[in-house]
Design a protein around this nucleic acid. Structure first.
Length: 263
DNA sequence: ATGGTAGCATGGCTA
């Protein structure tokens, strides 16, 4: 089973590219972020034509998340208990019977945070606090949880192109990294890091300047899961080729491949 | 320190 996540920065602009990605990669599940449209603007039938069940949590202009699933979707939630940014479309949860077992799958678009120490920055820290408390209260030894998306925080020094230069930048301050660490410590594994313990790869490169040409990026998108799900993991890769394409997103997709056995 | 690009929406916000 293959599960991908991709911050596509507008589904209406990126529909042809996402359809091409589906054709080539054939993910059983695709988590999307920054769809930047309302539910009725989302090209649902185009994905249904490709054999996907589709759930969308959108809003006008900004944010927005969606989940495409080859497996029937059994339960849907557009927020979580305690969500401090409930008015923004950043969270979509489904349940589905996967080959690895019955699972809760979440598409997450964490806030960027704007400027360090701004109002948005505080809201970002508070959002992660509320998400950690929810995940902590929800995780049980018999629950299979997959949470993928744009976390908008790079965890470690090897997750940014220059950890000295980036240390005061949004998405890499100590305060943010502590929030991400606390979320992981609630009982999650970073599936990319399990399979690539030393690799330095990025999932996001700024559109501005020559960031992509210079390979100056950050690894802020990933797929996390409960430990039992991680036992079924075969590989996890960042698909940089999709960031190289014309008229693409500023993020690359991340894909996890699982063995089809229950863990 | 600022600006560089991109999308939404058509001025300025968000990233």
């Amino acid at each position: 089973m293959t599960l991908s996540t991709w911050n596509i920065n507008s589904i209406r602009v990126r529909l042809p590219l996402v359809l091409q990605f589906i054709q080539e990669r054939q993910p059983h599940i695709l988590l999307l972020q920054e769809i930047k449209c309302t539910n009725d603007q989302f090209p649902k039938s185009e994905f249904e034509d490709q054999g996907y069940n589709v759930e969308v949590h959108g809003e006008k202009s900004y944010n927005g998340v969606a989940i495409l699933s080859k497996f029937p979707i059994e339960k849907v939630d557009t927020t979580f208990s305690g969500n401090t940014l409930e008015d923004q479309a950043r969270f979509l949860s489904i349940e589905a019977k996967l080959p690895i077992g019955y699972s809760n799958i979440i598409s997450l678009y964490a806030p960027n945070g704007g400027q360090v120490n701004s109002k948005k920055y505080d809201e970002k820290l508070n959002f992660f606090q509320s998400l950690k408390e929810y995940i902590s209260a929800t995780l049980r030894y018999d629950l299979s949880l997959i949470i993928g998306g744009d976390f908008n925080i790079a965890a470690e020094n090897l997750d940014v192109y220059d950890h000295v230069q980036c240390s005061n930048n949004i998405c890499f301050t100590i305060q943010e990294r502590q929030k991400l660490r606390a979320l992981i410590n609630a009982g999650l594994c970073d599936l990319y890091r399990i399979k690539n313990p030393d690799k330095q790869e990025w999932s996001w490169w700024d559109y501005k300047g020559r960031f992509f040409d210079m390979d100056h990026g950050m690894r802020i998108d990933t797929i996390m899961s409960s430990y039992n799900v991680a036992q079924s993991l075969n590989d996890c890769v960042i698909e940089k080729a999709w960031r190289r394409k014309k008229s693409t997103s500023d993020h690359a997709p991340v894909t996890a491949i699982f063995s089809d056995e229950k863990s």
